[in-house]
Simulated scan of single mutants.
Amino acid sequence: MTIQPTEWLMLFIIVLMPVYSLWEADKVKIAILAGRKTKIRAYQDAMLFMWLPTLVLLALMAYGAFAPSDFSLLWLGNLGNWIGTVFVVAIAGYFAYSAYTLMHNASARQKFRDVSQNHDWMMPVNKSELRWFTLGLSVSAGVCEELLFRGFIIGALGDSLGVVVSLILSSLLFGLCHVYQGWMNVLRTGIIGLVLGVIFILTESLWVVIALHALVDIYGGIVGYLFQQPEK
């Protein structure tokens, strides 16, 4: 099965995303730390960066170049769908319990704080930043990045590239898109992308990985916010 022109177009656009991230590199971090850019503006810029290629993909889908089934956006009601749904609910419960524990346990907060200092510059400090991070940036990342990296590369291109190649390619590009957070985070994010890709394949549902991705980012924002608050 050959790759169609519209698929080449989307693949080219997605490849440009890590190229742009590499070009930007530390510029966002430097601008925030220097006070030239607010965190909310940085969140908004990141949302725009994700939504622009996603809107192109959705437009092509509306045009008929892709079908929702290509991205596993349809509920099949099979075992994989149900196991994925239960897993999402379990993860949401765990994150809620963990956030509650951190909120009421100073020593636990300190342990987490010691290993997350590299991300302090991008974490929300006040409630306005927290809303933008959780409801804006995190939800956008869940929807956009899963549609692009898992839904398109693994779902739509899986038959053409093969499952293994599409899984590795999606994880690699996904990791490189986060180079602005540092090269160690590229590796970490790439591994997360690999895990999400496997879950996507096993559950046959993009909704499952969209929910998981958004939950992980929302949890990270809430925890980051808690770390930025002064101890009472």
Rank of each mutant, 00 (worst) to 15 (best):
G35T: 11
S69H: 09
L147N: 01
V28R: 06
D120S: 06
S21N: 11
M184V: 09
A62I: 13
L202K: 15
V195M: 15
L48Y: 03
G197C: 01
V139S: 02
G182K: 04
P53I: 13
Q117W: 08
K39M: 00
A96C: 04
F174E: 00
D114I: 13
T2L: 13
I83N: 03
L33S: 10
W75T: 07
L9C: 14
F66M: 08
L173N: 04
T203D: 04
V89D: 01
L161G: 06
R150F: 12
F200G: 09
A106W: 03
V19S: 11
V15P: 06
W132D: 02
S170P: 05
W8T: 01
A65F: 12
M17E: 06
V56N: 01
G224F: 01
L9E: 12
Y63N: 05
F66V: 02
A25S: 11
I192Q: 02
L172Y: 06
H104F: 10
I218G: 00
Y63T: 14
V88A: 12
G64C: 13
L22E: 06
M17C: 15
A99H: 08
L58N: 00
G193V: 07
I210N: 00
L22P: 08
E145L: 12
K27E: 11
H119V: 08
R188K: 15
Y219R: 07
L173G: 04
S138F: 00
T2Y: 11
L22V: 04
G93Y: 09
E146G: 01
L48M: 13
A59V: 12
L11C: 15
S21A: 13
A90L: 15
V186I: 14
E24R: 15
A211M: 10
L206I: 09
S69I: 06
Y180M: 05
V223P: 00
R41K: 14
G93T: 04
Y180I: 03
P68K: 09
T2G: 12
T101F: 07
N126H: 11
V208S: 07
P68T: 11
T85W: 14
A31F: 08
F95Q: 10
I91T: 06
A34R: 15
G77W: 04
L161V: 07
S138Y: 00
S170I: 01
V86M: 13
S98E: 14
H104G: 06
I40E: 08
L16C: 15
K232D: 07
N126P: 08
D26K: 09
G155N: 08
G64M: 13
V195A: 14
A67D: 15
T101N: 08
